[in-house]
Amino acid sequence: MGQHGDKAREALLDAAEELFARFGIDAVSNRRIAEHAGTANHSAVAYHFGGREELIRALVTRHTADTSRRRAELAAGLNPNPALPELLACLILPWVEHLGSLPVPSWRARFVYQLRAVPSMQEVLAGSVLANPLTEDLIGRLEAATGELAPTTRYGRSWILGNMVLGVSAEYEARIQDGAEKANWTGVGYFLIDASAGMLSAPVTHPGDFLTQPSAVYLP
């Protein structure tokens, strides 16, 4: 694909990320994305990506090379028996540091949060995690570090962890755009690490089956 095609593809990705973040995945048509990208070709999404799901996959993996490199750096510095916050830092810090590197306004956190809310799109998001052996290994080590928890308790807390990290990131991103917050993504990252470690290590006062199926920590 030539330089013109690459620019058109990037414009479509930018437009889709913003519209999905603002209005939700199912509320935005391919035609609207093309128009927001400034093209008169209403079939541009199909032409450049092959279809809607391929466009969303491209959005999910758009910045994963940067976060993967940072995650590998942090994981390489772990000692043989890392504490829970150290494992969580490897998962959370690359995500929030990447958000901090984006221009304002950014839409990344709100897009991923919207994506996680759509059941049909969760497989796409999960695939981006499982395609990365390092992330999968870190999640496995996190599960081992919380081995005293019953599986159903771990599933439930992992579900809360994912929603918390993405939800806080999405709201913070919006507050920065509105001028309500001065960006301090590193501070937010360590706040989320502490909160996540506290939740995962909290005592169980009443056993139950809140969730009976695994719920992964999705952080692209």
Rank of each mutant, 00 (worst) to 15 (best):
G127M: 04
T205A: 11
P85E: 00
A202G: 02
I160A: 10
V217D: 05
E10K: 15
E53Y: 01
R22V: 09
S158E: 09
E53S: 10
A174I: 05
S201T: 02
L161F: 14
A170Q: 08
H4C: 06
L55E: 03
N81V: 09
M121F: 05
A27G: 07
A44Q: 09
E18G: 14
N81A: 09
T153D: 15
A144P: 00
Q3G: 00
A83T: 15
V168E: 10
T153L: 07
A145H: 03
L93A: 01
L88R: 11
L200W: 05
I56Q: 13
S196A: 09
A58H: 10
L91V: 08
N184E: 11
S201N: 04
A183W: 06
I176Q: 09
A8Y: 02
S215M: 14
K7A: 14
L59M: 15
T153V: 09
E148H: 11
A46W: 03
G51N: 04
P151F: 06
V28K: 06
S196H: 02
A44L: 09
E181N: 02
A16C: 08
I176S: 03
A46N: 10
E73F: 07
A216S: 14
V217N: 10
A109G: 13
P85F: 02
R69H: 11
T39Y: 01
H63N: 11
R32K: 08
N41K: 06
P82Q: 05
N81S: 07
G100I: 10
H206F: 04
Y113L: 03
A170T: 11
G24N: 05
E18M: 08
P80K: 04
D137A: 12
A195L: 07
L55I: 03
A72S: 15
G2A: 03
V118L: 07
L19E: 12
A8G: 10
T186I: 15
